[in-house]
């Protein structure tokens, strides 16, 4: 009985010791890209595409509005 308890405690201890090590394992991220500042290029490109698409949507919206006005639609 005593042996089982001791074994159990030993396992528990080893878990407790291992946990912080697990938590602190270095996780690879795109740190280099951030350090170089190249990430801003990616952000700028994505923003250009988005702004282009939204402008397109707005122009489409305006065209539909013009047609509605022409037909005398209230909505």
């Amino acid at each position: 009985m005593k042996k089982i308890t001791r074994n159990f405690l030993a396992v528990l201890m080893s878990f407790m010791l291992a946990l912080p090590a697990l938590a602190q394992a270095p996780v690879e991220m795109a740190d280099g890209m951030r350090a170089e500042g190249k990430i801003y290029v990616v952000v700028a490109i994505i923003l250009m595409v988005l702004i282009g698409l939204f402008t397109y949507l707005f122009l489409l919206d305006r065209k539909v509005k013009k047609l509605e006005d022409k037909l005398g639609n209230n909505r």
Partner: peptide, 17 residues
């Protein structure tokens, strides 16, 4: 799209960036 790429995100194994 700005914050999603630049703000802090947790470091998780397997998922990474």
């Amino acid at each position: 799209h700005i914050g999603g790429l630049l703000l802090h995100a947790p470091r998780m194994p397997i998922l990474n960036e």
